[in-house]
Design a protein around this nucleic acid. Structure first.
Lengths: 218, 218
DNA sequence: TAGATTGTTAATCGATTAACAATC
DNA sequence: TAGATTGTTAATCGATTAACAATC
């Protein structure tokens, strides 16, 4: 029943990936009482070129003022809106292993507006959600409770073997987006999107940088 | 003393990011006793086009055979070698919060060859490393022990406020690569590389896909 | 006014995709 | 031989960078 579709193409993906980092910096400045920021300041913080910052900020449609910079408040609002921070970031967590549980306490994600309304796993992992005050349920009740919760996003942190089985349940229960921390490539119908995170790919990049940065290497 | 440098440019970064996923698939096939694999098979598993797979595999320098495909064993060996899986993946973990601790049990990373030789934090977090049998030390001893361990990689999972301070210690102790899970952009000298992971950027991409995949949206 | 910073337009660079010849 | 699959070469696409005019 479920088919594989090529994942949808997103325009300006690299820019979108950088937006949360801009948001962090901008919020810091806002808290400090700053009103305007230049592309060169943001560039220095982000370790990129100012022109790239200006191109990125184009996406927010906020117009800067020559000699002054960009309004920090406008940028924050616009980025938050663009990313949908405030709305639609209600999620459930499926799979409360040590990794899954750690997401519940992640400051970066909370700052971004992610709210985990419920966590599901076998009962033995219940304790892990207590500290974060997230309601815990047996995984058997996933389908039943999803019907009631009106949640769009599921964070998938189950063992890889169970990933597709749980995905099928999530899809059947009306989930629209799956944030996939398993090492499986999930098959989902067209109206559902997935985003796979792969820690090993980051490690691969680190290794590549290490090799290419060795003093003996050129 | 420490300066900011533009992060070094890595050739074929997207390909390098995909290599760990290829490796997973190839190892599965190897365990099943398969000997050859076609680009179209890998493409289907990876949700990409076969031509992209062939281009990616060019990097391994493994030659395929028309009508037959690529030798699975050769590909595995070559990718492992390319990524430096077997060697140089000894690391220390600094910051044993729930997230940091969860990395100790991550199967994907262990499959990739990452070995955490020691973990550092305040004593209250000692318990978290026990289950994973990783030696735990007070963070005061970081500098002293790094001199002895001959480790190239540090995994940084401390609170963002402490990130730069700990980084300076790591750099002074001879660390060559820092895998940065904090939300700080670290300043390091030229002979040290960093790789920053940002969970929020993955969530931003998921949100973008959700918005662009809404039935009402076009 | 002079000078700093934005924003536009064009150039470059690199990744992906396409077409098809080579090969087993 | 016929046909499937690799590998090469070229085309396309998109992201980054550069140059500089516009603007406050």
């Amino acid at each position: 029943m479920l088919m594989n579709f090529r994942s949808i193409k997103i325009d300006k993906l690299p820019t979108i990936r950088r937006l949360p980092a801009y948001l962090n910096i901008l919020r810091d400045l806002f808290v400090k009482g700053e009103q305007y920021v230049s592309s060169s300041y943001l560039a220095e913080k982000m370790f990129v070129e100012p022109i790239l910052v200006r191109k990125d900020l184009e996406l927010t449609r906020v117009a800067g003022t020559p000699r002054v910079g960009y309004s920090i408040e406008e940028l924050i609002t616009s980025i938050e809106e663009f990313l949908g921070c405030s709305d639609n970031l209600d999620a459930v967590l499926v799979g409360v292993g040590q990794f899954g549980a750690s997401l519940l306490g992640n400051r970066g994600l909370r700052n971004f507006g992610l709210r985990v309304l419920a966590a599901f796993d076998e009962d033995s992992h219940k304790a892990r959600t207590l500290a974060h005050r997230v309601p815990f349920f047996e995984i058997d009740r996933l389908e039943e409770l999803l019907q009631r919760l009106h949640v769009t996003i599921a964070i998938l942190c189950v063992p890889s073997e169970d990933a597709q089985k749980i995905t099928d349940i999530l899809v059947a229960s009306g989930i629209r987006g799956i944030w996939n921390f398993t090492s499986e490539n999930l098959a989902v119908p067209e109206h559902v999107v997935t985003q796979k995170e792969d820690l090993a790919s980051g490690l691969a990049v680190l290794c590549a940088k290490l090799v290419r940065n060795r003093p003996t290497h050129h």
